[in-house]
Design a protein around this nucleic acid. Structure first.
Lengths: 187, 187
DNA sequence: CTATTCCTTTAACAAATGATAAATAATTAT
DNA sequence: ATAATTATTTATCATTTGTTAAAGGAATAG
C-alpha cells in the first residue's frame, strides 16, 4: 500500500483512521500481459492503482481497436465515463505489461465519502487533476499535427518504446501506417 | 437564483441552510456582447453561471484566437485548468451574446467545502460530469472528420447559428476556410 | 525449432484539410 | 447613410493523413 499512499498524499493528506478505512476496500493482485482488467459492457465499479506495469483503456469503433489512454506505474486508471454516470462502459482495460495492481472498490469508496469527509475530498482533488489533464489533452489533439503529438508523447514518457505501435497510433488518432511513416521521417 | 438552483438540483440536492450559505458568495450581473468576463493571465477564482446569453473560453495560440469551449444559457463556465491548479490561466472568457450571469466566488466556495459537506459534494459531482463530457469530447475530436463534428455540433444545439463561424472553426480544430467549405458542401 | 500469427514498414494513389489570396457580404462606428 | 472594419466565401495549390496492398520482421504456440 505504500506506493498508493505516496500517490494519494501528493494530492491531499487524509487522517490515519481514513487510511485504515481505505485499506479495508483495497485488494492487491497481479496480472499478466494482455489480460483484461475490465471487460466491455460492465459498469465501472473499481478504481485501479498501478504499482507496477502498464495498462490501457480501449474500445472498439466500427470493429477497430482504439486506445483511449495509457496508465503507467504509480498512477490510477478508471473508466470515468462509467464510474461517474453509473452507465455500463463500452470500454475495456487491458494490461500491456505484467502488472501489480491495487483495486479500490468504488461502491464502497463512495459510501466512505459519507463517513470520511477527507476521503471524498482526496478523490475529488485526484479527479479534478485528471480532468485538467484531459482538458489539456484536447488542446494537444486539436492543434498539433500527428508528428508533433508523437514527439510530445516521446518526451512525456519513455514507456512509449515498450508499447506496440498500433496502440500508440490509435491513441494519437491516426492510422498505424501513418505513424510508421512519421517514425521513418524522424530518423 | 432560481435558474442556478434548478441547475444545481439536477446534480445533487443540498440543504436549505447550504443554499443560504451559497447565496452569500454569489453576485449577479449583466454583460454586453464582446465584453471579457475574465482576462488572460488572471488566476481563475470565479465560477460563472449563465442565466442568459452565450460565452466562450478562448486562448491565443501563436497569436491566433482559438475557442476552447462554449457555454449557453443554464450552464456554468469556468477555466478549470486554473481553478483546480491555482496557476494563472492563459485563457480568457468572452461574452458572445448579452448575458445575465451569476458569479460564484470560488475562493469562498472552497472554504464552504469545510463547513458544508453537501456543497463540496455538489460541486464534486458537477465537475465529475463536466469531466465525463470532456472525455467524450476527445473521442469526438479524434475519430470524426471535421464534417462529422460540425454536423454533430449542429444537432447538439441550435445556438450554433448565432455564433461567428470563425469561433466554431477554431473550436472544431479547423480553419475558417475549411469550415466554410464544409458548410458549402452541406447545402 | 518451426510454423503460424501478428506487427511494422514501404509504396502508390485518394481524400481531407491547410495556406494564401482575392472577392463578396455583413457588421459597426461615425 | 456612409465609410471602415470585420466576417465569410470561393478558388488554387500544397501538405498531411487515409486507404489498400504487399513484403519483411518479430513474437508466440505447439
Amino acid at each position: 500500500m505504500t506506493d498508493l499512499y505516496n500517490f494519494l498524499d501528493q494530492h491531499y493528506k487524509i487522517a490515519p483512521t481514513s487510511k485504515l478505512a481505505l485499506d479495508e476496500i483495497c485488494i492487491s493482485s497481479s496480472l499478466k500481459k494482455n489480460e483484461l482488467l475490465q471487460n466491455f459492457g460492465q459498469t465501472c465499479k473499481t478504481i485501479y492503482f498501478l504499482k507496477e506495469g502498464i495498462a490501457r483503456i480501449f474500445y472498439l469503433k466500427d470493429g477497430i481497436d482504439i486506445t483511449e489512454s495509457f496508465s503507467f506505474q504509480g498512477n490510477i486508471i478508471a473508466r470515468v465515463e462509467s464510474l461517474f454516470t453509473g452507465k455500463p462502459s463500452q470500454k475495456a482495460i487491458q494490461i500491456l505489461e505484467d502488472a501489480e495492481i491495487i483495486a479500490i472498490n468504488a461502491t464502497k469508496l463512495f459510501k466512505l465519502y459519507d463517513t470520511h469527509h477527507d476521503i471524498e475530498r482526496l478523490f475529488r482533488i485526484i479527479f479534478e487533476h485528471a480532468y485538467v489533464d484531459t482538458v489539456n489533452r484536447i488542446e494537444s489533439i486539436q492543434f498539433h499535427s500527428a508528428d508533433e503529438r508523437y514527439k510530445a508523447l516521446l518526451d512525456e514518457t519513455n514507456y512509449v518504446q515498450r508499447i506496440p505501435l498500433k496502440h500508440i497510433a490509435s491513441y494519437l488518432g491516426i492510422t498505424q501506417v501513418s505513424l510508421s511513416r512519421i517514425r521513418a521521417n524522424i530518423k
